[in-house]
Amino acid sequence: MKENLQELNARDLAAKYPVILGGAALTRAYVEQDLHALYEGEVRYARDAFEGLRLMDALIGVKRGVPGAKLPELRQRRVRPAASAQVAEPAEAGPVRSDVATDNPVPAPPFFGTRVVKGIPLREYASWLDEGALFKGQWGLKAPRTGDGPGYEELVEREGRPRLRGWLERLHTENLLEAAVVYGYFPCHSEGDDLVVLAEDGSERCRFTFPRQRRGRRLCLADFFRPKESGETDVVGLQVVTVGSRIGEATADLFASDAYRDSAIRRLRLSSRHRRGYALGCHWWT
């Protein structure tokens, strides 16, 4: 983002194009303090699409000279008072590997390699959807802070679940979801903070590097697999899932028609109790 804003500055486009930024990789303080100081135009942070729309209305209002139109104040970064600020301590000295046991039996996989499962019906996973993430995060169903008006549960019963049922029916009748999964089991071992996935001949296929806790038990995901020096080969399960390309096309049409709330149906997630059973990797692709 920083490089993009610098490029807009260099091309003398900053005054012409206001920028709204958001997403999991950014924070409001970083956008409205650090990037705002860098960009020669207007830059604001939007927590979600609805805040982005409000910002667009404000930007257009200011540009057109609408009476009373103004942008919200920049959010100041919260700074801890100097008296209570704590100096970060260095990481504790200790062994490279944590105390995770290395003598439990290595599980026997049902097979090695990958398999593909297609045509998973909607009824098999519809009940696992994370309604809270959809209703609160995507559809913005929240009780008013003043206490006036319907509460959250009432909004869910009156608006959330009826709309969700309607969408599930449409997804089923129009066959918009083409759920499939590629999964498999692979030999592996760990080397320090790395999990090394092996090919059938024992050569390195790929590796994943994981962070390690700086204190306490100094845990790292790699510790839960047999270390290379043990001479034993462990096993790791990986999977990738998809809902197909048709839902992407359908939500693009909704977005183009300004149906932002309905277009959020694409971002439905499984509830945490079902995500917890996943192996190391699980990503949706479309």
Rank of each mutant, 00 (worst) to 15 (best):
P227H: 13
R54W: 09
D99K: 00
V19P: 05
R54G: 07
A10E: 09
E73P: 01
F210T: 00
D34E: 13
G22H: 12
E7N: 11
G166W: 12
E178N: 13
C220H: 06
R28K: 10
I120R: 03
Q213Y: 00
G132P: 04
R123M: 05
R161I: 02
G202D: 11
P105I: 14
E232Y: 04
E7H: 13
P144R: 14
E131K: 15
G184Y: 13
L129G: 00
R54V: 03
G113I: 14
R80N: 09
P109V: 11
T233A: 04
A83G: 12
R54A: 09
Q6T: 14
A279G: 13
F224V: 06
E178H: 15
R145D: 04
P150W: 06
Q76F: 00
L53M: 10
A143W: 03
H189Q: 15
A256L: 03
Q239K: 10
E153A: 13
A259G: 05
V100D: 04
D253N: 08
N9W: 13
Q213G: 06
T114C: 04
R75L: 12
M1H: 14
G149A: 02
L53S: 02
H283G: 09
V106D: 00
R47S: 06
P162M: 08
R44I: 00
A15H: 14
P72A: 03
R163A: 04
E174A: 06
A180Q: 15
R212H: 00
L26T: 01
G61K: 15
K118M: 03
E200F: 04
R215Y: 14
K136Q: 06
K118P: 03
Y260L: 06
A256T: 10
L53H: 11
L129Y: 13
R77Y: 04
N9K: 01
R207F: 04
G216P: 09
E169F: 06
P72W: 07
F210S: 00
Y278T: 11
L8A: 12
R273M: 04
F135D: 09
H283R: 03
D12W: 10
G65E: 07
V87W: 07
R246C: 00
E249T: 07
K63L: 01
D34L: 06
A199R: 12
K142M: 05
A15C: 01
L164W: 08
E169V: 08
Y39A: 08
S271P: 02
V196M: 14
V19M: 07
P67W: 05
S84I: 11
R212F: 01
G113V: 09
K70Q: 06
E153H: 03
P81Q: 07
A88W: 09
R80Q: 08
G68C: 04
K118A: 08
S245V: 05
A180D: 13
R54N: 04
S257I: 02
A133D: 13
R161L: 08
E3W: 01
A29E: 07
R78N: 12
